[in-house]
Design a binder for these strands. Structure first.
Length: 894
RNA sequence: GCGGGCAUAGCUCAGCUGGCUAGAGCACAUGGGUCACAACCAUGGGGUCCGGGGUUCAAGUCCCUGUGCCCGCACCA
């Protein structure tokens, strides 16, 4: 490794990633190149990883997310930044608790049998054993995190940060506790925040139910509509809108609740939509969020008829013990027999489900802790408006504002055992609540009968602190000083609210600075048909399988190339193959280069210099191109244009470096142009590969490291190398223009060859090229050996435009040159005549367009002069071309 | 209801602040065992840029409108 030039023979089998990737990752770790040093005298660049769940296994979303972060970090390291990529994992409250519970269930043990302490111990044991699996998988992907700094949301330091934040917010009255109707998962037996509820459209029934008057007054009763008849048992009022002409007269009357017979009042409340249904609504404060508000406004009683398990409670009378959904049908049946069920029509409505286990959530009345979000959100909106934080792509800013502006209080308590326990204690004697950093010894009332709150905090509470808690906050650390605020956060849009918004919230509150300057939101990885990947669909592509089969570089390159701002990624194994071919191409091109480099040939500087006598057009050209690609690549990475960056390199390496430059270098490398040319050519190739490998390294680190080593470029690891510098070569534009001219001639010859179906290995005896421009004649004649080789021609005859053309020949004509291929009896002349006639027709149409444009006064007056000039030239050129085609036709007809 | 996105070749998509003959990859067709590479090379066919209006000298690009698809949030008695 690193000692000298590789044995080229070993490379002949093509690129095989497996052993190479493992070897280099180990070397990188050994050399500590990922380690961040806050005290280095360099500009900082930092990223915190979106901490994967400890229960997690690497999926394509992670692979994408971390590939992009890795690209940025590796590029920035080479660009001279001190880089911190902070890694770690999230304890993932519900998810982890569920996983461990399930594994206990296999042995027939429930967590309640174990008890809280023993259960939490089990979870820690599970975490120690399996929790680092995803870290190993990130390493396989090539992630260049500073692993020495790996953190866990429940490790000691982070737990301290969590406590401090909770206590401070409580003291500022930004955290409060209260009895509210919250989202409850009857399976997980915990409260959920609004975000943790997933709404799905379900087919339900819309029941019309008659509530008979119970006050002896006129009429039969009031009809109300409901999708949840089981909640009828908990009704404590009927409400109508105060200005509803249709129902106003009902206010103040009394009706009896079906089945229970409870007599309830008719009240008025603005919440009712008078247009909807009958305009009368049954009010169940204990089981519906809107009804809860109505209930508290009117001081209505709350009757809980459904318990925490989703089972009908004591209050449900005969229905006690029935599951809520079973009770729904049973109660509908009873209403029917009572003659109170007027109708039951099908109706689609959206129903909330637990985002973890999919159980239908239940609005449930209980005592919970909340973060008062509104006052915090104001600062956070201002931070984005002021430009301190920038979303990329920009459209996500809207999404962020919309949520922040309509934010509701965040329910942060969870009835789980795995997580950060809420630092609140209750005095059994005086009932006082004590919120404190340390476990209090006694209550203010002097007694010591204290009990800590049983609940833990929402997982997202601790992840909200991640950008500063991982760097040692609340202590004042070198890392915080050097690396906070972080440079960019890279994540998917699905956690903008869960995580991004809340990090901003906590960062602004506790660091008084934004946690990151840019938020790069990438797309979702879908299957090749654009469907979400899911286990149940069976369309999940496992990145680890892909890595095994094609290598991490192939996966990284594929994901990167498919990453376009604002577009989802449609992924298939087939696409990975395409990009794997590129790695092989790069491998073979390098192999070719190495075969032709004896020793380190040294540098030519500048590479495009005028004073280097042995540089030819294509040498200068590739130097110019490398330079332009360098500045383009730098710009694209800085702007998070990952897909464009990957494709820029792909196209450059394949279509320019391999297809043209290396081909054109062959005569020199084989010694046909003498020792000086050979040496010059070697030097150019050496330098070109050195820069190209560096530019590719952030995207495909493994193969470039291996090739770097094979070339023996020196300076150790490629990642330690400096990012190439774009140079401005004098005359660069001319070089590119000349090269394009030359390429066009070669392509034209190849086309003519194909036209007469000349087999590729056969050389064409003669091509006649007429050039308009003297300078071009010199250019072509200097490079005619090159052209002859690339296009397989024996003789290339040069003359000025207008020279007599050869008989029985086919031609390609442009304004600058005409190319003739005397074909004699090689081809079907009649067919060729038709081709020219077609071309003439096309040309006519085009010229009409241009002529029309030039005939337009407005165009002449208002368009920029260079555009008008261009059009004039095009017209002149077209006319010349037309004449030549006509002549050509004549020539063939003769 | 509020907000956002997308519509370009058979498929997946580029086309940036309007200005070259609208491009690429895959697929397809033809030819090729040429000494880096068949995981390759060369060449070719294929487009009413979703419909309709407008702005402009000029629209795939900007504006309006219609249609179709997708996503998020809220509501859903």
């Amino acid at each position: 490794m690193g000692a000298g030039r590789a044995n080229v023979g070993d490379m002949a089998k093509g690129y095989e990633p497996g052993p190479i990737e493992d070897k280099w990752y180990a070397k990188w770790m050994e050399d500590g190149i990922f380690n961040a040093d806050p005290n280095q005298n360099k500009p900082p660049f930092s990223i915190v990883i979106p901490p994967p769940n400890v229960t997690g296994s690497l999926h394509l979303g992670h692979a994408l997310d971390n590939t992009l972060q890795d690209i940025l970090c590796r590029a920035k390291r080479m660009q001279g930044f001190k880089v911190l990529w902070m890694p770690g994992t999230d304890h993932a409250g519900i998810a982890t608790q569920n996983v461990v519970e399930r594994s206990l269930m296999k042995d027939g043990i429930s967590r309640h049998e174990l008890g809280r302490e023993a259960f939490v111990e089990r979870v820690w044991a599970w975490k120690e054993e399996y929790g680092s699996r995803i870290i190993g998988q990130l390493k396989k992907l090539g992630a260049s995190c500073d692993w020495d700094r790996e953190r866990f949301t429940m490790d000691e330091g982070l737990s301290r940060a969590v406590r401090k934040v909770f206590v401070d917010l409580y003291n500022k009255d930004l955290i409060y506790r209260g009895k509210y109707l919250i989202n409850w998962c009857p399976r997980c037996l915990t409260a959920l925040s609004d975000l943790e509820v997933e709404h799905k459209e379900l087919e339900g029934k819309f029941y019309s139910v008659l509530y008979r008057f119970a006050d002896g007054g006129e009429g039969e009763g009031i009809t109300v509509m409901t999708t949840r008849p089981e909640t009828i048992l908990g009704d404590t009022a009927i409400a109508v809108h105060p200005r509803d002409e249709r129902n106003r007269h009902l206010v103040g009357r009394r009706v009896s609740v079906p089945i229970t017979g409870r007599v309830i009042p008719v009240i008025e409340d603005n919440m009712v939509d008078p247009e909807f249904g009958t305009g009368a609504v049954k009010i169940t404060p204990a089981h519906d969020p809107n009804d809860f508000l109505v209930g508290s406004r009117h001081g209505l009683e709350s009757i809980q008829v459904i318990d925490a398990h989703g089972v009908m409670s004591d209050e449900a009378g005969a229905y006690k013990g029935l599951d809520r959904l079973e009770a729904r049908d049973a109660i509908a049946d009873e209403l029917k027999t009572l003659g109170l069920l007027l109708s039951a029509d099908g109706r689609k409505h959206s129903v909330g489900h637990c985002y973890r286990c999919g159980t239908i959530i239940e609005p449930y009345l209980s005592e919970q802790w909340f973060v008062r979000a509104k006052p915090l959100a104001e600062t956070d909106i201002a931070a984005v408006k002021a430009g301190a934080i920038r979303f990329v792509p920009e459209q996500w800013t809207q999404t962020y504002y919309q949520w922040m502006e309509n934010i509701r209080d965040w329910c942060i308590s969870r009835q789980l055992w795995w997580g950060h326990r809420i630092p609140a204690w209750y005095c059994a004697d005086c009932g006082k609540v004590i919120v404190s950093l340390e476990t209090p010894a006694a209550c203010k009332c002097g007694r010591t009968n204290l009990r800590q709150d049983e609940d833990v905090l929402d997982t997202w509470f601790s992840s909200a602190l991640w950008p500063f808690s991982t760097m040692g906050w609340p202590d004042d650390t070198d890392a915080l000083r050097a690396f906070y605020p972080t440079s960019v956060l890279v994540t998917g849009f699905d956690i903008i609210f869960f995580w991004v918004a809340r990090m901003i919230m906590m960062g602004m509150e506790f660091m008084e600075r934004e946690p990151f300057r840019d938020v790069y939101i990438h797309a979702l990885v879908r299957d090749e048909h654009g469907r979400k990947m899911s286990k149940s669909r069976g369309n999940v592509i496992d990145p680890l399988v892909i890595i095994d089969k094609y290598g991490a570089d192939a996966l990284r390159l594929t994901l990167t190339a498919l990453t376009l701002q604002g577009r989802d990624i449609f992924m298939s194994e087939n696409r990975v193959e395409t990009y794997r071919f590129f790695l092989n191409k790069l491998w073979n091109a390098s192999r070719f280069a190495l075969m032709n480099l004896e020793d380190s040939p040294g540098d030519i500087a500048p590479l495009c210099g005028e004073d280097e006598p042995h540089l030819r057009l294509h040498d200068r050209w590739i130097a110019v191109r490398v330079s332009n690609v360098t500045s383009e690549m730098t710009r694209l990475l800085d702007g998070y244009f990952f897909g464009e960056a990957a494709r820029l390199m792909y196209d450059f390496v394949w279509n320019e470096l391999c297809d043209w430059y290396l081909e054109m270098s062959k005569p020199a490398l084989r010694g046909g142009e003498g020792p000086a040319r050979k040496n010059t050519s070697q030097k150019v190739i050496y330098q070109v590969f050195r820069d190209v490998l560096k530019l590719l390294h952030p995207i495909i680190p493994f193969v470039t490291e291996e090739l770097w080593d094979a070339f023996a470029f020196g300076g150790g690891i490629i990642g330690r190398g400096e990012w190439p510098v774009a140079k401005s070569y004098p005359g660069a534009e001319t070089v590119e223009y000349d090269m394009a001219f030359l390429q066009n001639i070669v392509r034209a010859i190849r086309n003519l060859r194909a036209e007469v179906k000349l087999p590729p290995q056969k050389t064409a005896p003669l091509m006649s090229l007429r050039l308009k421009d003297q300078a071009k004649t010199a250019l072509i004649s200097e490079n005619s050996d090159m052209i002859k080789m690339l296009a397989k021609v024996d003789e290339l005859e040069l003359s000025a435009l207008g020279a007599p053309k050869p008989a029985k020949s086919i031609a390609t004509v442009t304004g600058d040159w005409e190319l003739f291929f005397p074909v004699g009896s090689l081809m079907d002349v009649g067919r060729e005549i038709t081709r020219f006639e077609d071309e003439l027709k096309k040309l006519d149409a085009e010229m009409k367009k241009v002529a029309g444009k030039l005939g337009n006064e407005n165009f002449i007056a208002k368009a920029p002069p260079e555009v008008v000039e261009k059009e004039r030239a095009a017209l002149a050129e077209g006319e010349a071309r037309k004449r030549r085609i006509e002549e050509n036709l004549e020539g063939l007809r003769r």
